[in-house]
Design a protein around this nucleic acid. Structure first.
Length: 289
DNA sequence: AACTCTATCAACCGCGTGGCA
DNA sequence: GTGCCACGCGGTTGATAGAGT
């Protein structure tokens, strides 16, 4: 097989882009559209590798990129999304219109991460960085103690058809729950589509009086050992499991419904949720996506 | 003014994944 | 089923600006 040589091995230009190169790239993409990055430089007449062109366009030249400082609302959203998603910058960026994954990643690494993790971490990070090292190259961390409970398969949700909006209180509850799950290694990963901006740019500031749509369509990939979800979960060998949850205004949601959903082999095609009536969810210990 | 340190962010690198033949 | 290819992602690097001494 063999990897295609990178630009440095092909004698292509690297480093900072000039205004002239930017102009050529923008002009080409405006005329021909994005994509075909591998052949774009040649077609556009740029002595750059396709990767570099793509990155330059996505992170800097795209017309919808928002310039300027990150607002407090955006900060708050980043923090909350990071708590939920971890270092999945592209997903986080997808919830912040006009912001790029690179920008958010940089902002987190230089500002927010320090604030969130405290001044000690900040010092460590700073020191490591100034020495040209990263935290990952530090002294090896002792491996976690062996698990004594039965292994829980971590389903990986690979698709989410719509963003999840919830009132502050509910959102906090869900986030906490998900973080607890993450801590107990029952982490669920899910992706949020990039091209569906939130109804409200500040996801966390949804009006609690409004209905909150939930439309999750998670395809849980079987990773070979089956899927287990909670005590009431099921396990099956091979294949994959689809979890469909969506909302309308007809059926109020309560914890019982979720329990039923879980009890039914974790699969019930049409679970209808109405977060207007979701107070009981806040008391629920069991929230599984 | 000169030097060092620190923070920032654009750009690079390598890997994973999905589509296709 | 397999290999190739293009693309996207997250981690990392390095240039540079600004602050501090």
């Amino acid at each position: 097989m063999g990897r295609k040589p990178c630009c440095s091995k092909e004698g292509l230009k690297r480093g900072a882009w000039t205004a002239h190169e930017d102009k050529i790239l923008v002009s080409y993409i405006e005329t021909h559209g994005e994509g075909k990055w591998g052949s774009l430089p040649k077609r556009a007449g740029l002595n750059r590798c396709g990767k570099s062109c793509r990155l330059r366009w996505l992170n800097y030249l795209r017309p919808d990129i928002k310039r300027g400082n990150i607002s407090e609302e955006e900060e708050d959203l980043i923090i909350r999304l990071h708590k939920l998603l971890g270092n999945r910058w592209s997903l986080i960026a997808g919830r912040l219109p006009g912001r790029t994954d690179n920008e958010i990643k940089n902002y987190w690494n230089t500002t927010l991460g320090k604030r969130v993790h405290g001044s000690l971490d900040s010092k460590a990070t700073s020191t490591a960085k100034s020495k040209g090292k990263t935290l990952m190259t530090g002294p090896p961390v002792a491996p976690p103690p062996p698990r004594t409970d039965p292994p829980v398969i971590r389903p990986k949700a690979v698709r989410c058809t719509r963003s999840f909006c919830a009132p502050d209180q509910l959102m906090s509850s869900l986030l906490d729950n998900l973080v607890q799950r993450e801590n107990s290694e029952k982490r669920t990963l899910f992706e949020v589509p990039q091209h569906e901006p939130l109804n409200d740019p500040g996801m966390g500031s949804m009006d609690s009086d409004k209905a909150c749509p939930l439309d999750l369509d998670f395809l849980l990939q079987d990773i070979g050992e089956g899927i287990q979800v909670g005590d009431n979960g099921t396990s099956e060998e091979g294949g994959s499991t689809n979890f469909d949850m969506y909302s309308n205004d007809s059926v109020p949601f309560d914890g019982t419904m979720l329990e039923n959903w879980m009890a039914n082999d974790c699969y019930q095609p049409d679970v209808t949720l109405d977060f207007q009536s979701s107070a009981s969810l806040l008391d629920s210990e069991e929230i599984w996506f």
